[in-house]
């Protein structure tokens, strides 16, 4: 079996762009094996408030556990998730 590749378009969601993933969290909630990780975006750590970071992103941290149910791709309101097998 090939590796599953999951990509999020950070120009849309996260990193201080259009969508703050903390306000959405749809992909996180819908994913049964919980393969996504919501975290302060390290890229912006220097500029961000260290005690209360405001710039977050979602990383598909465990793609090997993905069941390819495709719910995250279908339900992402911004169409920001791509999955390749």
């Amino acid at each position: 079996m090939g590796k599953i590749k999951i990509k999020i378009d950070y120009s849309i969601c996260g990193d201080g762009n259009k969508i703050d993933p903390r306000d959405c969290t749809i992909c996180l909630k819908i994913c049964e094996p919980a393969i996504f990780l919501l975290h302060p975006s390290l890229k912006f750590q220097k500029e961000d408030d260290p005690y209360d970071p405001k710039i977050w992103r979602v990383t598909p941290v465990y793609p090997s556990l993905c069941t390819l149910c495709m719910k995250c791709v279908e339900q992402c309101p911004e169409n920001a998730i791509r999955i390749r097998n």
């Binding site: 302060p40 390290l42 260290p50 990383t59 941290v61 793609p63 090997s64």
Partner: peptide
């Protein structure tokens, strides 16, 4: 301060991303 980012940080060349 950045606890949630622990799994994406690299150490000794590895992070937990894609652990499987």
């Amino acid at each position: 301060k950045t606890f949630e980012a622990m799994q994406v940080r690299k150490f000794g060349g590895f992070s937990a991303v894609g652990m499987g």
